[in-house]
Design a protein around this nucleic acid. Structure first.
Length: 524
DNA sequence: CGAATTTGACCAGCGC
DNA sequence: GCGCTGGTCAAATTCG
């Protein structure tokens, strides 16, 4: 082997600018000479083998020997002694060998890619299985908790003093929690009685199929911009929800309270804290800046964006750097998209979904408290975890805050988080247009998801032309956090695979096939 | 030249 | 009622 290596190095030295490539080829060729897997690089290895055998005096192939003699002559010592014809044929041979080596490296790359795909598929399947089990466990925990909450809720409702209404923030939070729990429960009840087909139909309908969106549409038709934030008065109940699904809100007073709560929930916000040098974190959506203001208590300006991925999309977000640590970018989302989301946006949306799902898990014993800037994740579930998800009712509307500034390895594995493998598992099963930011949507999809565990996979409605991100923002923070998570790659593969697979299946009219196993055609 | 951004003006809510 | 603040609008400006 030594003469061969030396020959290649000489070839490199006589050919400017390709040193690295040939060295790599030499590496692969060496590796390949022992394996001899691909037919494509047979010629090169054949030459190498012949060279070896020739140096051992075993074989005497004329064609090969001619070339090798020239090459070895060139590389041995006296380049200057070679005649002009010899130089020409030597160059031809070099060219031929270079082509062969290029073919070699291409074949090797193909083989590595194929193997990489196989490994990804395997990992994806393992992840899918693991997180299916994990979510099933969460589901069981959730049901158990709901049963406990139901019994205690009745007593609490009966004994709640009227003056509690004076505690505005506490009431806001309480209403929010009540509605969220009611809705989750109602969804689960309904879904437990409905067929999987109905379930899919309900969840995969037109983008405006949520109650919040319905109310928003009516508000848009009837009210001016300054009345957007008002309580939607006189609105008929969304079909099949308030009057039918639960014991609450069945009186006029309760309806009013429900409507107020709905307006509040519609204004519920999800705030994401992430470290980034860029002016915005990449969330996959397209945003148009429509304003900038200096906010009190923060020297950094607050920028206002609205989603421009669809005309009339009500989603807005505020971006502002943290006053204490300006490397932290705080992005606050409000509203829900009236259009399907691209995968990148789904990742961010699933972030909020995860936060909301935590919020909705029924583990909010202190929901009556005015300000809940403590970790709302049950301590028992997350021993020693940082304050990743917080719920604050100190603002006029409930705000879920996701703190992505902590290193991922400080988070428990099961903590709901976009960078956790939970998120692709979730989004691979949830309709994309439900992955907006409003808490209501998240409550709905969480309840639906939990109810659907073990039964059906929900389709993702994404078309190929919606799979594009946008290059307008830097993804440093997101990428840094993401790449630090060893589970991300497999999770991302699972998510994209599921999305693409469902997109294909949707196009073919099959909406009910599984998603997590569809990993064979991800050629992105 | 159209789209995106900037920026001052305007409006509503809230506290005093 | 007044001032402060947050949020939005829209004309002006910049950018690709």
């Amino acid at each position: 082997m030594e003469p061969v290596d030396h020959h290649i190095v000489s070839l490199v030295q006589s050919s400017d600018g390709i040193k690295r490539v040939v060295n790599e080829m030499d590496f692969f060729a060496h590796d390949r000479s022992s394996k001899q897997h691909d037919k494509a690089d047979y010629d090169v290895h054949h030459h190498h083998v012949k060279t070896e055998s020739e140096h051992h005096g075993a074989d005497q192939d004329d064609d090969v020997n001619t070339g090798l003699n020239l090459l070895t002559t060139n590389t041995a010592s006296e380049k200057s002694s070679v005649a002009g014809d010899g130089i020409t044929s030597s160059q031809n041979l070099k060219e031929k060998q270079r082509v062969n080596q290029l073919a070699d490296i291409r074949a090797e790359l193909d083989r590595i890619n194929a193997e990489n795909q196989r490994l990804k598929l395997t990992l994806n399947q393992v992840n899918s299985n693991y997180y299916a089990l994990q979510m099933h466990l969460v589901s069981l925990t959730q049901r158990h908790r709901n049963r406990i909450a139901e019994s205690s809720e009745a007593n609490t409702q009966m004994n709640r003093p009227i003056e509690e209404k004076k505690h505005g923030e506490g009431m806001v939070a309480r209403q929010f929690m009540d509605l969220v729990q009611t809705e989750t429960k109602a969804e689960k009840d309904e879904l437990s009685e409905s067929s999987s087909e109905d379930r899919c139909h309900e969840l995969s309908g037109s983008p405006g199929n949520t109650i919040v969106e319905s109310m928003e549409r009516r508000q848009k038709n009837n009210k001016s911009r300054n009345q957007r934030e008002d309580t939607p008065e006189g609105l008929p109940h969304p079909a099949g929800w308030l009057p039918n699904k639960g014991p609450k809100f069945n009186t006029s007073k309760d309806n009013e309270q429900a409507q107020q709560t709905m307006a509040m929930i519609r204004k519920a916000r999800v705030s994401v804290r992430a470290r980034s040098e860029a002016s915005m974190i990449s969330d996959g959506c397209q945003w148009r800046k429509y304003g900038q203001k200096m906010a009190k208590g923060n020297p950094c300006p607050r920028a206002y964006y609205r989603c421009t991925m669809a005309t009339g999309c009500p989603v807005r977000k505020q971006v502002q750097r943290c006053a204490e640590d300006r490397t932290i970018l705080v992005t606050t989302y409000e509203g829900n998209h009236n259009h399907p989301l691209p995968p990148a946006a789904m990742a961010m949306a699933s972030t909020t979904s995860a936060a909301a799902s935590t919020l909705l898990s029924g583990s909010m014993p202190s929901a009556d408290h005015g300000i809940m800037n403590s970790n709302i994740v049950p301590k028992g579930m997350l021993p020693g975890s940082p304050n990743l998800i917080t719920l604050s009712a100190s603002a006029p509307f409930p705000t879920v805050t996701l703190d992505l500034t902590h290193p991922p390895n400080q988070r428990p594995l099961h903590q709901l988080h976009p960078l956790s493998p939970n998120w692709p598992h979730n989004i691979s099963r949830l309709p994309a247009h439900l992955l907006g930011h409003p808490i209501y949507n998240q409550s709905k999809l969480l309840g639906t998801y939990l109810s659907s565990q073990g039964n059906n996979e929900l389709p993702v409605h994404l078309s190929q032309n919606q799979m594009q991100g946008h290059p307008m923002v830097d993804t440093a923070a997101t990428a840094a956090a993401i790449t630090a998570d060893p589970n991300f790659t497999a999770a991302l593969v699972a998510a994209i695979t599921s999305i693409i697979g469902n997109s294909h299946r949707d196009n073919s009219g099959n909406n009910n096939s599984t998603t997590s196993r569809n990993t064979g055609d991800n050629n992105t």
